[in-house]
Structure formats: C-alpha cells, structure tokens
Design a protein around this nucleic acid. Structure first.
Ligand SMILES: NC(=O)c1ccc[n+]([C@@H]2O[C@H](COP(=O)([O-])OP(=O)(O)OC[C@H]3O[C@@H](n4cnc5c(N)ncnc54)[C@H](O)[C@@H]3O)[C@@H](O)[C@H]2O)c1
Ligand SMILES: NC(=O)c1ccc[n+]([C@@H]2O[C@H](COP(=O)([O-])OP(=O)(O)OC[C@H]3O[C@@H](n4cnc5c(N)ncnc54)[C@H](O)[C@@H]3O)[C@@H](O)[C@H]2O)c1
Lengths: 233, 233
DNA sequence: GATTAATTGTTAAATTTATAACAATGCAAA
DNA sequence: TTTGCATTGTTATAAATTTAACAATTAATC
C-alpha cells in the first residue's frame, strides 16, 4: 500500500486535530522554541498526550526521544498532508455581516487556501471589493468559478437561500461546500459538504451549563439532607 | 434512577443533534405539517432514520405508528431538555466584525438564550449599542456579569487576547465559554468550554476536496492503463 | 558505569458512537 | 376481514475513536 493510501484512511477526527496542531505550532514558532513535547501540544488542545502521539504515528512522524517533536518539521509534514500542492481557491457567497467578517478574517491566513471571489445578489454589493476581493453578481457564478478555478464555496446567504445557492454552486462545478447557514443543504455524491450552525454550539454550552447548575443544586440538597441525618445521631 | 439522571447521560452527539432537530422542526412548523417521519428528519440532517429514532428513544419520546412524530410536541420536549427553565443570559466579548455579526444574528433567535451585554476595550465601541445591546468597558465585566446574571461568554476578541479574556470571564463567575478565536484558552474544572476555529473546518473541506481530486486522477491513470492493456489483446 | 526519570511509539483494551436487525403495531387496500 | 406494508422502538452488532499499558530509548544523575 502506498503512503498516500494510508493518508486517505486517516480518521476524520485526526484530520481536524492535525489542522489544530499546525495552528498551535505556528504560534509556538514565534516563541524561539524549536521542539515541543506531546504533552505540551496536548495541553493546548485539551486532549491527552497519547492522542497526540497516536495522531503523529498515523502520519508517520517520529520525534526525538527526550527532545520531542521538531516544530518546523512537523508543520511541514502536516502541511504536506492537508494542503493541496497547487493551492485551492475559495469563494464566499453572500457578502453580509458574516460573509464580510469571514473574508476579512481568512485573507492571507493560509498559503494554500485563497479566497479569490465573492458573490451577492444585492446591486449595492456587486462590483465593490472587500479586502481586494471582488464581489460578483450571483448570475456570473458559473463563469467566474470556472475561470478562477474555484473549488470550495462558503455559503453565508440568508438561510432561506441556502438550498438554491448550494445548487448553483454544484451546477458550477464546485468540489466542496462549507455551509454556515442554519438551513442544511443537499449535495450530490462527490461534493464534500460540511455544515456548521453556531446556535447549535451555543445551545450545547447552554445545556451543559444548565446541567452543572442542576448538579450543584442537587449537591446543596444532598448536603442539607446529610446535615439533617447527621444531626439526628 | 430519575428521568433527569438519564438526561445527564445523553451522548454529546445526541445533544447536538437534538438542537439541530429542533431547528429543523421549527422550520417545518411553517409548512402547515403537523407530523414528521424519522426518515424526513434524517434526510434534512444527512443522517440515518435509525439514528433519529434512537435519539428520540433516548429522550423517551414516542411517535405515532404510520403518522410519525408530532412536530410541536417534539419541539416542546427537546426544549424542555436543552433549555434552562429560567433562561440563560449571554455576553459577547469583542465587538469587532465577528462579534457584531453574531450579536445581530443571535438576537431574538431563541427564547431562553438572550444576549444581554457586550464588552470591548476600544473607547469608540464602549457606550454604543448594537441591536439594543449595550457595549460596556471591559473593566466593568465582573460588575455587569454579576448584575445581569450572565452565565455564558462568547469570546471574539483578537486571538492574542483570548487567554486574558477567558481569565477575566472565569474570575467574573462565568459558567460556560464559547471561544471563537483560533487560540485555545484554559478554564478551571466546572466551567464548560467549547472552542471552534473556522479555519479548521475550511481546512478539513480542503483536505477532502484534495483527496477526491487525487482519487479522480488515480482513476484516470487506471483507466488509461487498463486501456493500454486491453489494446494489447 | 549503573540508575533513574522522562519521553516516544505501538499494541491492546475500553469507550463512545453509529448501524443493522427485527419484532410489534396499526393503517390501507384487497 | 385479512393481507401487505410502512413505520416505530429496541436490542444486538459493528465501527470509530479514545485511552491505557508498556516496551524501548535516551539523557541526566548518582
Ligand atoms: N451573522 C452571523 O454571525 C451568523 C452566524 C451564524 C450563521 N449565520 C448565517 O449566515 C447567513 C448570513 O448571515 P448574515 O448575518 O451575514 O446575513 P446578511 O443579511 O447580513 O447577509 C446576507 C447576504 O446575502 C446576500 N444574498 C441574499 N440572497 C442571496 C442570493 N440568493 N445569492 C447571493 N447572495 C444573496 C444579501 O444581499 C446579503 O448581502 C444567514 O443564513 C445566517 O443565518 C450568520
Ligand atoms: N472575523 C471572522 O470571520 C472570524 C472568523 C473566525 C474567527 N475569528 C476570530 O474572532 C476574533 C475576532 O475577529 P474579528 O474579525 O471580529 O476581529 P476585530 O479586530 O474586528 O474585532 C476584535 C474586537 O475586540 C476588541 N478587543 C481587543 N482587545 C480586547 C480586549 N482585551 N478585551 C475586549 N475587547 C477587546 C477590539 O476593540 C475589537 O472591537 C479573532 O480572534 C479572530 O481570529 C474571526
């Protein structure tokens, strides 16, 4: 089996963590350190050192005993794995609050991942540039996506428009979609789809905060009961 | 074991899906339908009907055979589980591009989850309101958080400031943190933490697009080879 | 030089999560 | 009425993911 075949079978979770490791390592590079231990990476990511070592084992990287992992080497290897050689172009569809924020944020963050276009339906936005990235009319999507070789689309249109936008992207030959609207879309086999709804995450936090509150309340009751029982003796 | 104990043990993934089910059901309510099948929910969420039924089993909800699940009932039950009775107040720290976008977006979306304050360090932002939510000076954090009974903080300050912000939140008695900066923070036991980096998700999409490209390229090579072999006959 | 401590790499086990299998039910159509 | 069929609810199985266990190695220390 070729090395590239092994990589194809990397667990999804490992892919996510590799991206996170690289992000953390890039920050560490600044701190004049050149090596890092598995437990240091683990601490940053709130996971166990074993998890880190296992992930690195899966990508075939070996550290130095008692010195840890060479930060630059590891960054390079992770980049080899998750980045595309020739780079990948990205477009944002919907230049509203979130679209503009993302465009500003992503610009220049990654070498191999460039946002090169945005699209909107509103004449006020079309033709203007945000962060040097032009905003095209949505009607030109297919033309621009083909011309600029755009492979990934980030959807930030109003939720009601998410489906139609996804369809337009697929019809334009997009390979991957990242949908930030709270309305799930459908894509055919072969188009990779990732959806994320911020409210879900906030509700999850809310749920566990609620649980912790109730647990704490229970303990108070328990303590009170214990107190009563104890005083009975 | 009490019913509430069962709920405490709901898988994390189930919690996330419950939030997503409710979101989808709320949309369905508009469409004059009053019942929904497990396979319909499943289709929307890109999962299997079994998964849906299993989740609903875990929360003890029963549908009607051949009619499916009562949408309103299910919404109410999910709300009972994930919402806090008395509601939970939320603050956003860092009124920049993302913070403003989130504030606009979240406002009024959920009954039991209210953003009631924002904080910033920049005098230009302090004292102004976005969407009727006041922006306070970061120095007033503890006072405001206690006064307004804020339990969750959403961090959208520059990455370099994430740690100090998290510490300030913890010191102010916050119960849950949602960190949207790419720099992980540390919190003590008892504070629930959720972190999300949008670049990680984009890089994941990018990785699988790359993989699909390579797979497609491999197939072309295989077809070519096969073709050559065939023409040898 | 031997000993100790720290760290990696890897296999094995446990846990969590998802899928499959299938009985039970009740509506609809024959 | 009866048969067929779609659907639920649940237990059993499988797959994915995490954690544990531990041998191997090296550097520092005694
Ligand atoms: N703002 C946030 O923080 C936030 C957070 C999570 C999710 N979201 C989701 O992201 C989406 C955008 O949110 P927003 O706050 O930026 O909204 P917005 O209204 O500010 O922006 C939407 C933009 O999409 C454009 N648009 C509308 N229809 C279009 C179409 N058919 N094709 C192309 N462009 C179109 C509009 O002209 C507008 O510029 C929404 O679905 C929202 O639910 C936003
Ligand atoms: N913009 C995006 O789409 C996006 C996406 C993902 C992640 N992020 C992350 O979110 C964070 C904010 O991004 P942004 O684009 O809104 O940046 P921004 O610069 O527009 O906003 C940051 C805000 O935080 C305020 N601030 C700075 N230091 C502070 C402190 N110590 N306490 C309180 N407030 C402080 C600033 O005054 C500013 O208003 C960054 O960490 C960024 O990496 C942004």
């Amino acid at each position: 089996m070729k090395a590239s075949d092994t990589l194809k079978q990397l667990p999804h979770k490992t892919i996510e963590r590799l991206s996170q490791y690289r992000r953390a390592l890039l920050i560490c590079l600044d701190n004049k350190k050149d090596h890092i231990f598995s437990h240091e990476i683990a601490k940053i990511q709130h996971i166990t050192p074993v998890q880190v070592r296992r992930d690195l084992m899966l990508i075939g990287y070996s550290g130095t005993l008692r010195k840890g992992y060479n930060i630059q080497e590891l960054i390079d290897l992770i980049s080899d794995i998750i980045d595309s050689n020739r780079g990948i172009n990205v477009a944002i569809i919907g230049m509203g609050n979130l679209g503009r924020a993302l465009l500003n944020y992503f610009s220049g963050k990654r070498h191999k991942l460039s946002i090169v276009a945005s699209f909107d339906i509103n004449p006020d936005k079309i033709g203007k540039s945000v962060n040097k990235i032009p905003c095209y009319n949505i009607t030109e999507m297919e033309k621009v996506i083909k011309r600029e070789n755009i492979e990934i689309g980030i959807i930030t249109v109003p939720a009601s428009q998410s489906m139609i936008t996804a369809k337009q992207l697929v019809d334009s030959g997009i390979k991957g979609i990242l949908n930030y609207t709270p309305k799930p879309v459908e894509v055919p086999e072969g188009v990779y789809l990732e959806e994320y709804d911020m409210i879900t995450t906030l509700e999850k936090v809310s749920f566990y905060v609620k649980m912790e509150n109730e647990r704490a309340a229970d303990h108070v009751i328990q303590r009170k009961n214990q107190g009563t029982v104890a005083s009975d003796f």
